[in-house]
Design a protein around this nucleic acid. Structure first.
Lengths: 370, 370
DNA sequence: GTTTTTAATTATTGTTGTGAAAATAAATAA
DNA sequence: TTATTTATTTTCACAACAATAATTAAAAAC
């Protein structure tokens, strides 16, 4: 059922192309310290698997036979990602380069895992049909769930309890019998980290990064040396617990609550509007307070993990995330000890990093050795 | 010059034996999901390299040809570890199983890197001679330095400035030209983490752990999935920066300073004595305060890394470390969110975990793929 | 055109690793 | 003693792979 697992050298080629875009065989051979012979064979295999392709018209390059750059082939396969929120269902379809082919977003009644899996299967079939992918290689499906794993194996998940029937259910069994595709289940913040890594371009410059996901609550995804950090029992990055339960934590719901407390009649996160004069003062106050709380988070992230970048992502409007980043840039973070600017940035991904990251999980698994 | 690098499967065998002690070929074949044929070949190679050996008289086991367990061979090689402190020089010699063959501790004038390397070479030759290791396989030398790396490559180090001429010196060049052996340089807390992992028995139960090293200042070593976490620029685990510069941090020097401020005339850490009635009250107060400060450290470690264990190690008397651990056990750490007891323990290693960990670096490098 | 240059491929050859099945080893049970 | 059982080793045919050198390809320089 699984796509044949790739050789270590084949994975190295794919990862180099993912990092550097396109490279000729000879450049790859130098980059990866392999012989040209080996590279010919490996690239032939990858070409015939359809995972890479030659870049067509490549302009003049001077004397000698022109090099033919290779790049990842969009048609190398596709993958599906899905997320469950309360009352929402998100599905994304990406090609082998990670580009979004289609994204689907719908409001639903709260679904139990079985119903969720059935609906995701339906939607997948619909999207596959609509985009003419029938018969093309399905690499698998990634599902991002809010909440940490209950086991290192990732069979059961402590899903936040707004999703009825999810907590402690054997999600892996349920999903894989319901859908039959190769399956990855991952924490939503970890999925977002994967998305920022591959699609946000961080893979070009960094091997270690942290993604702060301001979503339902607040969580973090950590990648070190190109690998997700899950911890001994799968709860690494659960930074929500750093905030005492009786105090507000810097999450979107907290902003919503703050706005309501100040008399703004909002029904959902979507109503938050920085430009609304009724909201601006409250939002500014919240930004100051939330940024102050995030200082601790950033400081401890630096101290423990030394990430090359800390990305802010989540459901908040970009303006508000940028407000947090600006305040953190101005703050006295511990990076100054090492004479570095705090590398806090705002996610620039179009589309939900959670769902995109979920869709990238099957592709990520092809690139990283087990 | 390097010991021939091992096959991935050979490394898997060594790591399984390091983890599980001793296993017969057939048990190994099952454990590692290899064929008996492959295991015979691989174990023959490792036997002829002298890295493993058969366990002699193994009692009755029931019907059938008795299984011959294999184990790591002490004589498979030896490695040297060295640490520089202010006015101290520590060297340890370990065999391939990680057992200490000899340890040497001496007081010196502050040494610059060249002089340090020369002295370590001298001592190594002396210990090698004294223990009849001439001609035996020298796997390399590990050097633990206090302070973080200045680069991901680990060529230059931001060594704490009590060591004159170390900071920002090209340590790798200096040491390797001076000694000529395969060389690893590592942060002292990371070295301690390696020691706890292999010698403290944590490798049996955990793949993710944190070691809090209360040494000159306070630092941490992090291992996730059996690999050291160094971060993007090599400063992961530098948790000293979490404590504001103008306030005391929970380090041995701080305890010393606290005792002195209370009128106890101590000259060095070695004079700290919990049983001394003049010191006890101060130490108790310090323990409460230090444990409270460490709560934050432990909480953020749990939140970011989800370690299977947090080990307390360092130069403080075990009684005092145990006092910290007891207080942390009683504290309301965030692990309780996940219904777990905080797995804080005190190092049980005999000998300096820093120097032992340094000596294990060449051995660790044999086991982990690059 | 011919030469030169660089890129990529194809023999060629030898090495290495592989699992299946058969053989051997060393014990207990009958 | 002989049969049985389990562990390990050997045999063997074969696939994967790598490096060198020779070859082909496609362009620019002459």
């Amino acid at each position: 059922m699984h796509f044949p697992s790739l050789d270590k050298d084949q994975r190295r080629i794919l990862q180099a192309l993912r990092r550097l875009g396109s490279l000729s065989r000879s450049a790859l051979a130098i980059e990866l310290e392999m012989s040209a012979t080996a590279l010919t064979r490996l690239s032939r295999d990858l070409l015939s698997l359809g995972l890479i392709e030659e870049v067509p018209d490549n302009g003049a390059q001077g004397r000698g036979r022109p090099a033919v750059p290779l790049r990842l082939a969009a048609g190398g396969g596709y993958a599906v990602g899905a997320t469950a929120h309360r009352g929402m269902l998100d599905v994304a379809l990406v090609d082998f380069t990670g580009t979004t082919i289609a994204a689907h977003h719908e409001a639903t009644d709260p679904l139990d895992p079985q119903a969720f899996a059935r609906r995701v299967r339906q939607l997948t079939h619909m999207l596959v049909d609509r985009h003419g992918l029938l018969g093309r290689r399905m690499l698998g499906i990634g599902i991002a769930v809010p909440g940490p794993s209950l086991s290192a194996a990732g069979d059961r998940w402590s899903v936040v309890d707004v999703l009825p029937g999810w907590r402690d259910a054997p999600l892996r069994d349920i999903f894989s019998t319901e859908m039959g595709w190769p399956l990855w289940i991952e924490n939503d913040a970890n999925a977002a980290a994967i998305a920022e890594f591959y699609l946000g371009g961080l893979i070009r410059d960094f091997s270690t990064l942290v993604v702060l996901l301001l979503g339902f609550g607040i969580g973090a995804g950590v990648i070190t040396d190109g690998r997700l950090v899950r911890g001994q029992y799968g709860v690494a990055g659960e930074i929500g617990c750093l905030f005492p339960g009786h105090l507000p934590r810097p999450s979107p719901l907290d902003l919503l609550a703050t706005l309501r407390a100040d008399g703004c009649a909002l029904t959902s996160l979507a109503d938050i509007d920085f430009a609304d004069p009724a909201q601006t003062p409250t939002i500014l106050r919240w930004l100051d307070r939330a940024a102050h709380q995030l200082e601790t988070v950033c400081n401890t992230a630096f101290a423990w993990l030394d990430p090359g970048a800390i990305m802010l992502a989540g459901t908040l409007p970009p303006v508000i995330l940028q407000g947090l980043a600006d305040r953190l840039h101005g703050a006295d973070l511990v990076t100054t000890v090492f004479q570095r600017r705090p590398p806090v940035r705002v996610s620039a991904l179009r589309g939900s990093p959670i769902t995109l990251g979920a869709a990238l999980l099957p592709i990520h698994a092809l690139s990283v050795d087990p």
